[in-house]
Design a protein around this nucleic acid. Structure first.
Lengths: 238, 238
DNA sequence: CGTTTCATGACAGAGCGATGACACTACCGT
DNA sequence: ACGGTAGTGTCATCGCTCTGTCATGAAACG
């Protein structure tokens, strides 16, 4: 579901252990990861669903990374696809040539995960592939993820970190009911141990924070089901 | 006038004919070019007006290119300065060491102008150096990258090199929240190992430097998220 | 009317940022 | 060459905010 909102990274690499390692670390960072073992498979996958970023090994079985890179750059559809090349230390001289063929960055093996993540983020940001930065609105509430600000009727609200994430989650799925378990998984994280009742408390804190005196409550309680972001009484209307 | 908007390249090279050739070709490509004959002069020029990119000969009279490179990497102010090394064919093995000392790329003489231009463009693009030499403003703060000067309400401020770059970074992305990792990558450089908490300290130093008595703090702390350049709490007031 | 489900207030502890101090380095002028 | 000065990165500590949990009261449902 929310996988569609994650940046999609395609790894083209024939060493399976390295792929596993990369996949693990990248998914932990919130990326969606696919992999291809050789250039041909990579081309197929890219054609049917272009990734947001390509991690490309310089040395590949059938088609070299540089060759793949060059082919991609010739296609108008993939001309601006962000590419990071993975090269071995000994190939340093040639690796630089990767830049000439159109790679946007490169990193030499062995590399630290942090360095790679940093480059990925920098490149994604530079190529403007971060759609999750749009302002979210509902009724008279506006939340801006970039500036981390929440307004109601133009009035600034102060939310704690958890309340902020909670509201952001609801704003991304308005009018939909979520069970406490759903909310815990989405807002707290999948493998966090927290009592489901804690959600109640944070819902209350969220209400207290966003509902000024005389304003309508936009958080709806659905008995035996969960909560939803919705105008409470004003729903029905035959 | 428009010279201020062109990417500024400094050539450090002692062979005058090569300098002339490079200058001619680079200027034709729309770059602004200066040159220095030895390491000392280069250091001076870089200190008073850092270029967007440095073309550095490996072999220099007084101070070797590698030594200059290493010195630059030690200065916080020039830590992320993009550097391309120029080396002779016979020095190939040692050239790789140039990368270890912090050069971002290198090219062996003799080289074609096209290859050099390609690397320059790739590196400028990669290092995200949008050659904005325009003055930056926010609220009552004004920063002039060219003269390296910061004013608040017309009053000159004294910032250390790191604080200067920190403020410059924030001024380029006003009102946006950045995590400590983001700030480290952007201001310190990607592969530098520095504790994320260090950002706190420099934020504090920046605040101390720019906030005169009775002036509003324009650096906003966002708990669990990071920092932003923004007018803060002066909202509420029921 | 009893049972289930949610709302609320309180609270102890964890988490997080602000701050001051300190050791270390680079730089400048004498 | 040498000493003073400024700048940098790290740490320990303080204080505040936020967080998760419980106990209790209120409300909805059969």
């Amino acid at each position: 579901m929310s996988d569609q909102n994650k940046p999609y990274i395609l790894i083209v690499e024939d060493e399976a252990p390295l792929v596993t390692l990369l996949r693990y670390n990248l998914e932990k960072q919130g990326f969606r990861v696919e992999d291809a073992g050789d250039g041909g498979e990579a081309l197929t996958r890219i054609t049917e669903a272009p990734p947001d970023l390509l991690l490309l090994d310089w040395m590949l079985p059938t088609m070299s990374g540089i060759e793949l890179c060059r082919q991609l750059r010739r296609r108008p559809a993939n001309r601006t696809l962000p590419i990071i090349m993975l090269t071995a230390r000994a190939e340093d001289q040639d690796a630089v040539r990767g830049l000439d063929t159109g790679a946007d960055d490169y990193i030499t093996k062995p590399f630290s995960t942090e360095a790679l993540i940093a480059r990925i983020r920098a490149l994604l940001r530079r190529s403007g592939t971060v759609p999750t930065k749009l302002k979210l609105n509902f009724h008279d509430i506006s939340l801006d993820p970039a500036s981390h600000r929440v307004l109601r009727n133009g009035r600034a609200l102060h939310l704690g970190p958890t309340e902020f994430r909670l509201l952001e989650f609801f704003l991304r799925h308005p009018k939909r009911v979520f069970s406490r378990e759903d909310v815990l998984n989405a807002v707290w994280g999948r493998d966090i141990h927290v009592e489901p009742r804690t959600v109640d408390v944070h819902i209350r804190r969220l209400r207290k924070a966003i509902n000024g005196p005389g304003e309508t409550d936009i958080v709806r309680t659905v008995r035996a089901a969960g909560y939803a972001l919705d105008l409470d009484g004003t729903v029905a209307a035959a």
